[in-house]
Structures are given as structure tokens and as C-alpha cells.
Amino acid sequence: MFEARLLRSSILKKVLEAIKDLLTQATFDCDDNGIQLQAMDNSHVSLVSLTLRADGFDKYRCDRNISLGMNLSSMSKILKCAGDKDTVTMKAQDNADTVTFVFESPNQEKVSDYEMKLMNLDLEHLGIPETEYSCTIRLSSAEFARICRDLSQFGESIVISCTKEGVRFSASGDIGSANIALAQTASVDKEEEAVVIEMEEPVTLTFACQYLNYFTKATSLSPQVQLSMSADVPLVVEYRIPDIGHIRYYLAPKIDD
């Protein structure tokens, strides 16, 4: 028996929003520690890794490890039926071919359940090596979303260049070019608005705008985002989900032909 209950459905709704444009289907691997999801987009350019810890749920029970293969578009349709303040419970029997979502209104006067067919997904799993990154940049997630959106108007790629002075995002194309430079913040009133850079070595890498924009669908999950970069390895874009886990996106860089 698997059962996971969240007091607020909004976390799960936001998680789905953060992955459903990038992935069509994915396996939720559930065990004693919580729920893990790892999946590549169809083009195998990026990888999504989601962790929701058992202790972040209001109730969590997983008697036997279970993999729930879900169509994310169907799951998203079901989660849209939940009110933000509803409690959500995901349930599945051992060896089940369906998963059930139960939504309860705060006053318990409305209880809905939706059963969804599971899929047998035989997806490839990638081993992500422990990596010491040359640069990590922490900034407001809303600011990062805005930068990606603004620069997307100029070209298909964004160059991210990190030095100890700051981080610079650039794009160029038919209409011209754009550069946005962020300096490390000296002092701020709100911690989530700070720009914090840790740098061992300067790094400059080029990434596809389209994917960065997909990643920013996670903005509502966290006030801050962390970018980790080293030369010639995938960028990591991490959103920490308060009290329960994180979502990390890995994006392969573009390279000179």
C-alpha cells in the first residue's frame, strides 16, 4: 500500500506545472524515503530530477517500493480539479494498475476522488555524478525567469558568463543583442532578492533559451533559484521546495561546431 497526503494540494499542482511542458510521461518512484522522479525530455537535451521527502508529507506510508508511471498531461488535468486549499492524498495498492487522487476541502464537506490508469514506462535512468562546480549563482527565481523571458526575444541561445565580479546573461540575433549583468549584492533587505556568487574559476557556457524557459515554470515553488556551472558539463538549475524537497533541471550546453 502506498499513501501520501499533503495538507495543501498547491505544492503538487506547482510541481506538475514545473514539469508537464518538458515531460509527457514520467515514473514516480516511491519508497520509505519519499518520492523521486527522474526523466529526460523527448529530445534528450535536459533531465529533470525531483525529490519529495517522506517527512515533508502530512502522512506518508509506503509498505513496498512502488513505481507509478504517469501520463503527466492526465495527471495535470486531475490536479486542476483540486482547490489550492484542498488536502490531496495519492494512493495506490501494491502492484496496482491505477493511482487514486483524493481531494478534501478544508471543512471536509467536499471529498472527490479521481482514479487514473498507470502506464508501464520503461524509461532510461541516468547516473548523475557528484560534481564540484566552478561557479554557483543564487538569485531571485522571479528575476531569473524575467531574464530568460527577456533574452528569448533576441535569439535561441543565452550565454551565461560568471566571474567574481558578477554574472552576465547575453543573447543576440537578427534584431540585435542584449546583455544583462548582475553584480553580487552587497546588502539587501530581503534575503531572497540577493545575488550570491561562489566562484572557483570563471565559466562561460551557452544554453538553449527554450529549455531555460521551461525550467522557469518552477518559479512559484521557490523564491530563489541556484545555477551551478562548470566548463563543458550540464548546467544545474535548482529550486528548493520549502520543507519537502527540490527540483533540479540539468541542461546540456551548446558547443562550437
Binding site: 529526460m40 529530445s43 541516468l126
Partner: peptide
Amino acid sequence: MSQKSITSFFKIT
């Protein structure tokens, strides 16, 4: 520039 695949960095397990 050409887009690398994520599988060229992370091995399939």
C-alpha cells in the same frame, strides 16, 4: 553551435 545531448554527459544506469 550545436546542442549536446544530456546522455553524452550522464551514463545510462
